[in-house]
Design a binder for these strands. Structure first.
Lengths: 247, 247
DNA sequence: GCAAAAGTGTTGTCCTTACACCCATGC
DNA sequence: GCATGGGTGTAAGGACAACACTTTTGC
């Protein structure tokens, strides 16, 4: 059993550091970047936004959207700025996923990167900038990326798989109005499984978070499905508390 | 609908950066640290390891265990080193939780910190070093901490609440042999709820991951409970796959 | 024998799964 | 009318929540 050590006079009167700035100045410094893994969904496929790498060392390879973090810039702000600068898009949701800082991950020397993930609706967010051949790639088709970006992207995919089952993130990948089929396709694409259509519908119906907008799909070569919107208001009011041991 | 942009000759032959080192050298640099939030469990209370802050600016306040990351040191390795240097402990499990990098979080200037969380058995890991009055504090009793460490600690507590329901992390906080009561106390302390004893027992019994070691509690002033060990082997073999939309 | 906590079973409800048939539309 | 996918209902099984009594030990 551990005993709480007495607070000795000696230790509590130990010399304190007054020059905090000097202390910090003595720390090793590293370049810091943010990278954004931006997922979209189109034609029943999960997609990711990539650009061509600028580096000769990764000639021809694609990479994530990133940039260094400016002095006095919040990490979140840096991620939003990268997204804005690279794609012209604002009004999207970004979430920090994890940091990667292996000394060997960048050929130019050590660079730490804080990775953010974003999910967005390809139809509703037109790419306004196409520098470095920015465009959407099918997630499944991506093989090699510059740096450690492939493993970062896969990490984010796993994060997304988990996240989308606990939070209604998926709706930001869909049009405002969507059919249940589209919603199910999204889940199947992200989770990599196939789900029973009737049970899937029942599940979402019982949540009571879908608003029937009384419209039907257009231009489909079969019976058109009903369109719905997600009830974000109702969801915000009644977020599920999570008690349920399960492993 | 988004069109894939043609790969123009112009853009694909754009000048590439050959001097990766020069590029990285041009990035702003920031001091990088790791901080460890180390949870333990004793006397039915969740506890956290803290030290006295060295800084005059935070005189008398407690802080998390941290240090700067050395050149060419992996982030994970830095976290393990901090733990070893501060407490003398090795053989513990550490997991990266999140990074915090607000420009104002350190009085000496901007410092980015990557936060790791660790859970350990207070009885099995004796503190070998007591610099800066290192000792265990009851989580519930902690009010103010140096830097942004209180909010970091609360973030880790929420992370732990979620994590412990999905993975059998809790067992690393208990002795090798424990009673079901101890296990339940642990869950109740971390989750901040009270649970039905019979249902709790049934839940763990049905998982089949507890090994009855045929021993009883000693020195308790009432009927002694049976002792169990966690079957890590069996758990490793049959990790649950997680499909279940629920929000 | 009294206090304190261990140990145990049943029942109802809800959620999940598996599964089959009719319906609306375009061609 | 036929192909395609939309839309619905039911039954069985499993998980979870609520709940009360007997047992063992120390004192």
């Amino acid at each position: 059993m551990m005993k709480r050590p007495p607070v000795s006079e000696e230790s509590s009167s130990k010399r304190l550091i007054t020059d905090a700035g000097g202390l910090v100045a003595s720390y090793p410094k590293v370049p810091l970047t943010v990278d954004c893994v931006i997922f979209g969904f189109e034609e029943n496929e999960l997609k990711v936004l990539l650009i061509r790498s600028d580096l000769e060392a990764y000639k021809g390879l694609w990479s994530l959207l990133g940039d260094n973090v400016k002095n006095n810039e919040e990490l979140d702000a840096a991620a939003y700025r990268v997204l804005k600068e690279r794609t012209g898009m604002a009004d999207v949701y970004l979430e920090q996923v994890r940091s990667f800082g292996s000394p060997k991950r960048h050929p130019g020397g050590r660079v730490i990167t804080v990775v953010y993930c974003s999910l967005l609706n390809i139809q509703h967010h037109e790419l306004k900038i196409h520098d470095n051949e920015l465009h959407w790639h099918s997630y499944a088709s991506i093989k090699e990326l510059a740096f450690d970006h492939a493993s970062i992207m896969h990490f984010c995919h796993e994060w997304l798989q988990k996240r989308i089952q606990e939070h209604p993130l998926g709706f930001s990948l869909l049009p405002d109005k969507f059919s249940l089929r589209e919603l199910q396709n999204l889940y199947e694409a992200i989770l990599g499984v196939s789900l029973d259509r009737r049970n899937f519908r029942k599940k979402f119906a019982s949540m009571g978070l879908l608003i029937d907008v009384n419209e039907l799909e257009q231009d489909v070569p079969h019976r058109p499905g009903k369109l719905y919107r997600f009830n974000f208001e109702k969801y915000e009011k009644s977020k599920r508390k999570w008690i349920g041991i399960d492993f």
